[in-house]
Nucleic acid binder design. Structure first.
Length: 472
RNA sequence: GGCGCCGUACCCAAGCGGCUAAGGGAGUGGAUUGCAAAUCCAUCAUUCAGCGGUUCGAGUCCGCUCGGCGCCUCCA
């Protein structure tokens, strides 16, 4: 299976060709663990999970690396603003290290609930300070840096390709519109590689360096860690679209300057999940976490389905109505899969009929065309509706397609008939009573009892085998 | 002010210039049911924000207008 991606670097659809035959080096920008991740934050990790599964499905051996930014970073690229970790620690009354650990755990709890595979290497910034220092040293030795006001800066004027991917080269960057200018910088695009001039009294996270005690600038970690785990030149780098102009632009500059070679072949960026009135953020309200959805009675996987229903490169509008739609669709899909499982065993794709093979081919075409997951979901439904495909083939198809979509169809089971489960005697009696009333055609009474039961959270469903119930 | 994205049915959302504009949800009609619920079947955009252009042919390309969003500050 040949896979095509829209490469942000050049903005065209390109067939994926690995550097090393059969292998893929994949680096994904991870979370900064100073707060809970909201559901918008979970989009890139879900998309990257589908990307990884697709590459594996296509037969590649993927080395998936993701950073965890657990070191404090300023809210600005100069020496201004406030350190997010310290701010959060102060607000929560915890140490910065505890903050990092707490929110890292919370993050992976969420990814687990979304059935996102854990990267092969999850690397913490605080455990790679030596690598970062060494890269800054290299940059200094090669003449790409200057020191000013105690901080080490990357000198973008020394790197002619600066801003190529973002299309910043011809553009006069307007700076200072919304932030205070860091007067230590020679150019507004320059960014800090190493801070020593921290104005924060109780900076908990500091390390010794050739430039004095301090801490790293936030772009350097991805460059240093990706080089360590994937080498100086690797295949794919992912992240949110917002990273293109600053973070990834700076990463490219420092990595290619330090390594002296091309850094990344394919850049894939996901768009945002937005609320009706715009971006999801704390200040605007609408900051929802996976846990919030669970608290409202949704399964985290409903949200995965919701994400899959939109293309990763398009803004996706979150509404409760569309999450409801995702839930209904996903539950129906699970139910149908469970029925197919009850009917028999899956047919191996190698033994597919022509009709089944066509669906599989369509699915593979769609996923390999820049991960068109909405189209893939449509393929799933057309598979289920087809009259030309046997049950065994349908099941075989679903399980095969789910290797990429990760909806856990293999685990789909028909809901056990709960009628066997013990109920308290009062409710048992009410159900009996209702049956009596029905037998006597006293439907007014039987319906009233049904309403009463519903009020107690017991929903009665009549069936040919008698009344069944489930908890609401 | 600069850069970029988008505007497809009630909602969400695909659509690489060319068969009848995917799919899900909601709705509607029917089957089934005492009635519900669930399920099944059917139905649901002569039309793609508006206007003009290119083309044998445009939702898809170009221009303009209107509207929405993102980025240029940390940010998925």
């Amino acid at each position: 299976m040949k896979v095509k991606f829209l490469n942000s670097d050049g903005r065209e659809l390109q067939e994926f060709k690995p550097i090393e035959n059969g292998k893929v080096g994949l680096y994904c920008c991870g979370p900064t663990v100073y707060n809970y991740a909201h559901i918008g934050n979970m989009r890139p990790y879900t998309f990257e999970d589908v990307l990884r599964r697709t590459l594996e499905y296509a037969g590649y051996e993927v080395n998936h690396v993701m950073n965890v930014t657990d070191v404090g970073h300023l809210t600005d690229d100069g020496d201004e603003g406030e350190d997010k970790m310290i701010k959060s620690a102060r607000e929560q009354g915890m140490s910065v290290w505890d903050i990092a650990e707490f929110f890292t755990k919370a993050f992976f709890h969420d990814t687990e609930r979304l059935n996102i595979n854990i990267p092969h290497h999850v690397c913490k910034a605080t455990e790679h300070i030596d690598e970062m220092i060494s890269m800054v040293k290299t940059l200094e030795d090669k003449g790409f840096t200057y020191t000013s006001g105690g901080n080490v800066y990357f000198d973008t004027a020394k790197f002619p390709e600066y801003g190529k991917m973002a299309g910043l080269d011809k553009q006069e960057l307007q700076h200072g519109a919304r932030t205070v200018v860091d007067t230590n910088k020679k150019n507004p695009q320059d960014f800090v590689l190493w801070f020593t001039k921290s104005k924060f009294e109780n900076q908990a996270m500091t390390w010794n360096s050739p430039w004095g005690v301090g801490y790293p600038g936030w772009h350097i970690e991805c460059s240093a860690m990706s080089s360590k785990y994937l080498g100086p030149h690797f295949d794919i780098h992912c992240g949110g679209i917002d990273h293109i102009p600053v973070h990834h632009t700076n990463e490219i500059a420092q990595s290619e300057a330090a390594n002296g070679c091309k850094w990344v072949n394919y850049w894939l960026h996901n768009e945002f999940v937005i609320m009706k009135n715009g971006k999801m953020s704390k200040s605007k309200g609408g900051f929802l976490t996976v846990q919030d959805l669970v608290d409202k009675g949704y399964d985290a996987m409903d949200y995965r389905y919701f994400l899959l229903a939109g293309h990763y490169r398009s803004q996706l509008i979150f509404t409760w109505e569309s999450l409801d739609a995702a839930r209904t669709a996903r539950e129906g899909l699970l139910k149908k899969t469970a029925q197919l499982k009850a009917e028999g065993v899956p047919v191996d794709p190698r033994d597919f009929s022509e009709a089944a093979e066509k669906v599989l081919k369509d699915f593979q075409d769609h996923i390999s065309q820049d991960l068109n997951t909405p189209r893939c979901l449509a393929d799933i439904w057309s598979c289920l509706k087809s009259n030309d495909i046997s049950s065994g083939e349908k099941l075989g198809l679903l399980l095969d397609m789910d290797r990429i979509l990760g909806l856990n169809l293999a685990e789909a089971e028909l809901k056990e008939d709960l009628s066997g489960e013990a109920l308290d005697s009062e409710i048992e009696a009410m159900i009996q009573q209702r049956q009596e009333a029905r037998k006597n055609k006293d439907f007014a009474l039987s319906d009233r009892i049904r309403d009463d039961l519903l009020a107690r959270g017991i929903q009665i469903v009549d069936s040919p085998e008698g009344p069944k119930w489930k908890k609401n």
